Amino acid sequence: MDLDQQIQELIEQAPQDGVTPDAVRAIAPVLKLIAGQLKHPQYFVLQTLDGRWIMTTLSHRTQPNTQKNMFYAYADLKDATASPYAKDPQVVALPVAATHILFQMVAMTTVDSAIFFETSGNVNSGTEVLRSDVQNLIQAHLQQFKQGSRPPTDIA
């Protein structure tokens, strides 16, 4: 599924409350921009049977009080199921579209970042996407969008 199809699916699956589909449309360019920099259109994310994503808390090596909450997105099912977390029978690895991961990440207030393992067979090196970076890009885009939608002030 290409990025436009992923965005369309996000819009269709959004609550039809008169607000959320338009909000998804508004931030779609940012989701597509970031997802377009990733190597795969979908990744496998470890989840509990009730749909909660498996998070990892890492501590800074020299500052143990500094912690970061993250989740992993694997390029391939074999890498996901080889994770120590996948040994739990209550955990499954499910494919999730890249734009959906980014959209979900913004809504997850307890997550700081996601690590996308881009190369199958290599879980030692990944691409980190910070939640704050995604949020900042969305805010900047929405600010431009607002300014672009205002009528000119010099209308006579």
Score class of each variant (00 low, 15 high):
17 D>F: 04
17 D>N: 13
18 G>T: 10
18 G>C: 07
18 G>P: 06
18 G>E: 07
18 G>I: 09
18 G>A: 09
19 V>Q: 01
19 V>W: 00
19 V>M: 00
20 T>I: 12
20 T>Y: 05
21 P>Y: 10
21 P>V: 09
21 P>L: 06
21 P>N: 07
22 D>N: 04
22 D>T: 03
22 D>M: 01
22 D>G: 02
23 A>G: 10
23 A>C: 03
24 V>C: 03
24 V>R: 06
24 V>A: 02
25 R>C: 00
25 R>S: 00
25 R>G: 00
25 R>F: 00
25 R>N: 00
25 R>A: 00
26 A>R: 10
27 I>W: 01
28 A>F: 02
28 A>E: 04
28 A>Y: 04
29 P>Q: 08
30 V>N: 06
31 L>S: 12
31 L>P: 14
31 L>K: 13
31 L>N: 12
32 K>R: 10
32 K>D: 03
32 K>A: 06
32 K>S: 05
33 L>F: 12
33 L>H: 13
33 L>N: 14
34 I>N: 05
35 A>D: 06
36 G>K: 08
36 G>C: 07
36 G>T: 08
36 G>F: 04
36 G>A: 06
36 G>V: 07
36 G>H: 04
36 G>N: 07
37 Q>R: 15
37 Q>V: 04
37 Q>T: 13
38 L>D: 01
38 L>Y: 02
38 L>V: 03
39 K>I: 04
39 K>T: 07
39 K>W: 04
40 H>A: 14
40 H>C: 09
40 H>Q: 15
41 P>T: 12
41 P>W: 09
41 P>E: 13
42 Q>V: 02
42 Q>S: 14
42 Q>G: 05
42 Q>E: 13
42 Q>A: 12
43 Y>W: 05
43 Y>R: 03
44 F>E: 07
45 V>Q: 03
45 V>I: 10
45 V>M: 05
45 V>L: 07
46 L>D: 02
46 L>P: 01
46 L>T: 02
46 L>V: 01
46 L>W: 02
46 L>F: 04
47 Q>I: 11
47 Q>E: 15
47 Q>D: 04
47 Q>L: 11
48 T>D: 05
48 T>K: 14
48 T>S: 13
49 L>Y: 05
49 L>G: 08
49 L>K: 15
49 L>M: 12
49 L>D: 11
50 D>V: 08
50 D>I: 07
50 D>E: 13
50 D>C: 01
51 G>A: 10
51 G>V: 11
51 G>K: 11
52 R>K: 14
53 W>Y: 09
53 W>S: 14
53 W>E: 13
53 W>M: 13
54 I>D: 02
54 I>H: 05
55 M>K: 13
55 M>F: 03
56 T>I: 12
56 T>D: 04
57 T>S: 01
57 T>N: 02
57 T>C: 02
58 L>Y: 11
58 L>T: 14
58 L>S: 13
59 S>F: 07
59 S>E: 12
59 S>W: 07
59 S>P: 01
60 H>K: 09
60 H>I: 08
60 H>R: 08
61 R>Y: 15
61 R>N: 14
61 R>S: 15
61 R>M: 14
62 T>P: 01
63 Q>E: 15
63 Q>T: 15
63 Q>K: 15
63 Q>L: 15
64 P>N: 01
65 N>Y: 08
65 N>S: 10
65 N>T: 13
66 T>Y: 10
66 T>I: 15
67 Q>M: 08
67 Q>W: 00
